[in-house]
């Protein structure tokens, strides 16, 4: 209880301190809506799953003369989204909604010396709603550099599909993990004007966090697995300022 009170008191003092400069600097804030597009790599950390399968396939090939393996490529993934921002004084409040999914599923296969082929296909997507509080370094009107952090609501999904899992000593033809959970992020960004009402932005978001272990909703409830969303995204965007 005491600890909670201390946290509230500290947060209140910090917020009061942050709002203090409001009386001395700029006037009322600005509101904008934007569209973002960018890139990330191996959303939901599927590279660690891919490494496990690639390792297992290569070891199978090594220990079974005549076996063949085609490793699974780790995908780049486009990220698209929208955001609403309110800039007040030195402060930025941003609420985003981003969706990321590799353009193509990651595929690989391992074939036994007898010709039995196990094709593996891994697909994934991630929805995220990051809420950011940051501070901005204003240069001119709508020309800023900013840094911030906050919480993110993630919806993450991973599906692993195999033809003949027994080749790798596995049992499930399909493993599916899906979860909604809260995590965190950090953000660095910059904004410059394009026209009087439009600006362009570049934002670097570092995501942190993982789900609790999730039930497998594929063939069987096991193995359970947590989804790790740690990773970095670079987003470019166009924002439209709304007069309020």
């Amino acid at each position: 209880m005491k600890k909670t009170l201390k946290i509230y008191a500290f947060t209140a003092a910090l917020l009061a301190g942050m709002l203090l400069p409001a009386s001395t600097a700029f006037a009322i804030g600005e509101f904008s809506l934007g569209f973002n597009a960018g890139i990330t790599y191996a959303p939901n950390n599927i590279d660690s799953i891919i490494t496990q399968y690639n390792g297992a396939m290569e070891i199978y090939k090594q220990t079974n003369a005549g076996a063949k393996a085609t490793q699974i490529d780790v995908p780049y993934a486009p990220v698209v989204g929208v955001n609403a921002r309110y800039q007040f004084n030195f402060f930025l409040f941003r609420l985003g909604c981003h969706y990321s999914r590799p353009l193509f599923s990651s595929k690989g296969s391992v074939t036994t010396p007898g010709g039995v082929k196990n094709s593996i296909k891994i697909s994934t997507y991630q929805n995220s709603i990051p809420a950011t509080i940051g501070i901005i370094m204003p240069l001119r009107k709508r020309t800023y550099f900013y840094i911030g952090g906050g919480g993110t609501l993630h919806q993450a999904y991973i599906k692993i599909k195999q033809d003949n899992p027994a080749v790798l000593g596995l049992t499930n033809n399909e493993d599916v993990y899906s979860g909604v959970f809260v995590a965190y992020h950090l953000m660095l960004g910059a904004e410059v004007p394009l026209t009087r009402k439009y600006t362009i932005t570049a934002e670097w978001i570092h995501q942190m966090g993982r789900s609790l272990p999730l039930d497998n909703s594929g063939d069987t409830a096991t193995p359970r697995k947590a989804i790790n969303v740690q990773g970095d995204i670079l987003l470019f965007g166009v924002n439209y300022y709304i007069h309020i």
């Binding site: 940051g134 501070i135 840094i147």
Partner: peptide, 18 residues
């Protein structure tokens, strides 16, 4: 480390850093 500091008064600055 990467961060920004903003002048609040002549001797006080607000900062945020990663």
């Amino acid at each position: 480390i990467a961060g920004v500091q903003l002048n609040v008064t002549s001797k006080t600055r607000l900062y945020m850093e990663w």
